[in-house]
Amino acid sequence: MGETITFWVLAVVSVAAAFGLVFSRKAVYSALMLGVVMLSLAVLYAVQDAPFLAVVQIIVYTGAVMMLFLFVLMLVGVDSSDSLVETIKGQRFWAFVAGLGFAVLLAVGIGNAVVGDATGLAAANAEGGNVQGLAKLIFTRYVFAFEVTSALLITAALGAMVLAHRERSEPKATQKDLARARFLGDHPTPLPGPGTYARHNAIDMPALLPDGSVSELSVNRVIARHDVETGRLPENARLAAAIRQVAAHGPRTEQPKVVQAVAEPAEVPVAAEDDPPTAARPAGTPVEEEGK
């Protein structure tokens, strides 16, 4: 009875988490969902008289593998959350058809494979317990496979090192080189901080340049995308356009020329005239429409 309750609870949790893994937009959420599934499965192992596997599941999978995933996620960039808009025609439809068909076939197939009650592992685990039983098998009957696994692990470790290693093809840049590159580049000065010359210094507000134009360089892309997705755009059309531009394609490197800017100087300030300056908000907090 206890097993039944455990099963049903964990089954629901793991399936829900699996769906979450597939459908969550952010890779980090997916990773967390996978962790939930793995933990549930660890418990299910334990319930099925496999305490050793349950522990290994937690240590290896949830501990090592999941950490690796998260590390790589951080390395690759959290900003790599992808949109769920399908680009390949028909891919999603057929994927669901195939997945559903496969699930049904598999469930029907191996569901019918089991006849009669489970034998149980009481007898097998009797001699010194589960760990000893497994150890006996691994070091006798499967010792060769076990040794080969060690070779596999070493090879994998070497392979990972070789793949991830990057040969430095040029000398490491000194501070002098960096300074030179900066002055030769587009922006000798530091990039404008958000909120510069604006009525407030909220981190998601684009800076205004001295001529009054909007600097797209000052907007963080992740934050801009978040704003676009949640619909928290400023009322001011030029600011909103700048944020949308950054969210969709990244900042345009070329800034409006000064001459042009002088021609139409003070639109934004006028539009923001009535706004009482608000205090700085913490980063990432929703920005209500400007000028409210």
Binding site: W94, A98, G99, F102, G109
Partner: peptide
């Protein structure tokens, strides 16, 4: 041959489903 690995995976998946079905 679109170059999209997901298309290839789809056909593999269909093939596997077909095999399981045929096996039954």
């Amino acid at each position: 041959q679109t170059g999209f690995v997901r298309s290839y995976a789809l056909s593999i998946f269909f093939g596997a489903a077909l095999l399981v079905g045929a096996w039954f």
